[in-house]
Design a protein around this nucleic acid. Structure first.
Lengths: 336, 336
DNA sequence: TTGTATGCGTTATCAT
DNA sequence: ATGATAACGCATACAA
């Protein structure tokens, strides 16, 4: 490994001068600086991020927290898109990404400890069980954090516009003449609560009654449970004309169930999803859904976090809502 | 931040003794060690991975390389499953994961330089353009590496069993009476070459002719291009009875195209996919496909890499093939 | 059994 | 404009 010491010897100057030259300090003669940089390149010098981090107290490394346990693991498209965009933006800003988890090897650490252990300059909390005290500890610590789809007091968060998203979908369905809307929702989280509330509120505003049996619980990203919920809805005396699914993937469970009953989409039943994953637009008929702007969310998260890291003095916590868009698709039939 | 110095002061011993006690060195009195550990916990001491890495020359950090450009980005299910399992296994072994990329912020680094810059103990190359000289440089460097689905000379690789996978699918289709098999393949990579070769070889063994027009190019994970390839196949005088798709997702493009022609699966046309992603088993009819054991591959990659890192003396490069399994599904019709 | 001294590679302060 | 020196937190060879 070639270090600044090697360069200093090769150039006949001190290590301090080399360091300055390499970092573009003003108090080094242009000619010497040039010579040093030349030599550095020639020798294949690479700065050592570890040593620098130890010295300056900044690692240029940000942690990313995905706790798979909550069903929000990396392999779910929404989260992998967020991860990818956090990564891209962070790298553009000169930061590397490290995963933060519990239980690294034999050591038992909680999230906060892990982040400290790795000297993370900040952490993006992308998907987690926010009732977990360990998450709370991290979010409330001195480590800069940005949360996605959840807000901690006095901390920055990036929020998908669940309220508006659901409202948009309900109004879209309403405009197509539907008055009997059923909603299969995911497990209860703050996101789910917002969607349910927005669903009910918008229905109320439009003067549509929502019988309790039209609201069915299921599990996010679990087609099977949505299939069961669909079956329950079909067994009602008064069937809905349109079913809202927790997410696009879950809709597939409903799709199978509807087919099994010989019910055609959208002729006999209209449906809408949520997320707007690519798959939804590849299906025929194309799914009517609401596309969450995962890329923008990840990008925004990385930017805000770095801003907070680099300008802690002028920083203020913010709740940033990122708007998605309606994908009209072809699964909502026009009723007359 | 509480350091070993703080503990040494609080305990009235030297920093060396504290370090030893914390690391379970044998040459420290049990009572002192106990007292020190107690104090450490009490003060909320956390080891500093950065300082330790600088000292011992090991970071307990492994790099993961996904170059999105090749269409193998994180958000493709096969790769995100690999990532997740690499992460899980690495963490179990006490290693953290950092993404390796080109161009970190303003600095221009290639992959090798990035890995050195972050002092990675090793790198998992999961998805990359293996013709890229930068990948080659990394793989051939002194840094331990493990490659997935590609083999570099004298390096360890974890390989999906593409040859056997394709053979299994062809034989399965053959046993169901099919003799006219068309294969839509992804862009040419070593994986694709293996699949094409295995397809042709198995067909030859079974005495099935494969007219050139039955082999169609498309793009992995791109339903549209597979849709076009499907259309081309349907326009042939002699249509195939079964179409092989590059992957499960691409099949969806074919599915739409077949529907558009009023062709029912599997009544009028049989199809098989590749990958065995959860989606494929949620569709109705369930897709006949070959499930790649992504989890095992990631796990194996992490294990082999750590083995190489920790026992460089006894280490030998290996090509490890991980077997997948046939998912029979319902999209291959029995022909009489 | 404990402590002293040293260095990992870097940057920052203060002389020169 | 340059350099000597110290320090970041830790681990280890060696002395006591």
């Amino acid at each position: 490994m070639v270090t600044i010491t090697d360069i200093s010897k090769a150039c006949g100057v001190s290590r301090a001068t080399v360091s300055k030259a390499l970092n573009g300090a003003p108090d080094v003669a242009p000619r010497t600086a040039q010579r040093i940089r030349e030599k550095a390149r020639q020798l294949g010098y690479l700065p050592n991020a570890t040593a620098r981090a130890l010295k300056v107290g900044r690692s240029y490394n940000i942690g990313v927290l995905f706790s798979d346990a909550t069903g929000g693991g990396i392999s779910h498209e929404y989260f992998s898109r967020i991860l990818e965009s956090v990564k891209a933006e962070a790298e553009a800003l000169g930061y590397d990404i490290t995963f933060i988890s519990k239980d690294l090897g034999a050591m038992q650490m909680d999230y906060y400890e892990h982040a400290k252990y790795r000297s993370c300059d900040g952490v993006v909390i992308a998907s987690a069980d926010f009732t977990d005290p360990a998450i709370m500890r991290l979010a409330m610590s001195e480590i800069p954090t940005v949360t996605l789809d959840y807000t901690f007091d006095s901390r920055t968060s990036i929020l998908s516009d669940n309220v508006r998203g659901m409202e948009t979908l309900v109004r879209f369905v309403y405009e197509n003449g539907h008055r009997k809307l059923a909603f299969i929702h995911g497990e209860i989280t703050s996101v789910t609560q917002k969607r349910i509330a927005s669903f009910k509120k918008t229905c109320a505003e439009l003067g549509i009654p929502v019988p309790p049996e039209y609201i069915r619980p299921a599990v996010y990203h679990d087609p099977r449970s949505s299939g069961l919920a669909t079956r329950a809805l079909l067994e009602l005396n008064e069937r809905p004309t349109c079913i809202f699914y927790p997410d696009d993937l879950s809709f597939l469970g409903g799709m199978s169930e509807l087919e099994r009953h010989g019910i055609s989409i959208p002729k006999d039943m209209s449906v809408v999803g949520y997320d707007g994953i690519p798959l939804s637009q590849v299906l025929r008929p194309r799914l009517s859904t609401y596309r969450q702007a995962a890329e923008r969310m990840g990008q925004e998260a990385a930017r805000r976090l770095v801003e907070q890291i680099e300008h802690p003095d002028t920083w203020l916590p913010q709740q940033i809502t990122v708007e998605g868009e309606l994908l009209r698709g072809d699964t909502v039939r026009r009723l007359d």
